[in-house]
Write a protein that binds this DNA or RNA. Sequence first.
DNA 1: ATCCTACGATAGACTTTGTCTAAGTCAAGC
DNA 2: GCTTGACTTAGACAAAGTCTATCGTAGGAT
Lengths: 139, 139
Amino acid sequence: MSDLLERLRGRGWRMTAQRRVVAEVLDGEHVHLTADEVHARAVAKLPEISRATVYNTLGELVTLGEVLEVSTDRRAKRYDPNAHRPHQHLVCARCGAIRDVHPTGNPLSALPDSERFGFTISDVEVTYRGLCPNCSASA
Amino acid sequence: MSDLLERLRGRGWRMTAQRRVVAEVLDGEHVHLTADEVHARAVAKLPEISRATVYNTLGELVTLGEVLEVSTDRRAKRYDPNAHRPHQHLVCARCGAIRDVHPTGNPLSALPDSERFGFTISDVEVTYRGLCPNCSASA
DNA sequence: ATCCTACGATAGACTTTGTCTAAGTCAAGC
DNA sequence: GCTTGACTTAGACAAAGTCTATCGTAGGAT
């Protein structure tokens, strides 16, 4: 993701301090941050950045396919900078920890035509839920 | 689901008019209603029922395993009375239509041990996204 | 049948997450 | 260095849901 800024410039992005900071935050930690967490880290680098700009920038990055939105719980969306390698998510039902995982095979092939009801399917999302080692130890 | 009320009574539920109405709404239409939609239909039968009660009752039904929560989009949770037959969901990315689907095999078996990171996995949720026949025709 | 009481229902305030708007600012081409 | 339209900002607004204090009632006890 180090050349992210270059790719974005190539797509006609105006390169502002705010956008640079948001990209840096996502690039810096390959974890799944919420918009608010991104904002908090961005404020540390650029105190006057606003919430709206963080939301806008994250939305643009998602539209451009540089970042994935992940909704594993009913709380805030999370942003996953690992957009270029297809993967699914494993979520701890207790502490909310999230790991990227790579199931074998294509989950789409498990859905026979008779179960597609004429839909044109373009995407499959799989979320595995359970307890992480820590939480199952202290259960 | 016709014996739902009996099952609930057997579990020590106090049988109030409000709970009966919520159960009837879910029983009546096997679609995926939001809490607000459930509330609207419940009000039609029992005008003084409150939003909080609908939320509480739905939450209890979910806890009891009688109803499933489905979060296919970033909007409201939906409630699925089809809790006793395992299934996944197929969602239209444009109009939001939801269908229950039954993929072949167990989605869990696609996740090798090396990708489980010590988690105790108890559940898998699969969401297929695409365009329904209507929406792909008018695209 | 009536009474009691703990469980359930209610209205409405509050919270969280996110979107929108109107006005100000600035990156980049000229 | 101007200009201009794309970007940013603060704060109002909105949707979905939770919480709280108070009132009502289902169902067992008498």
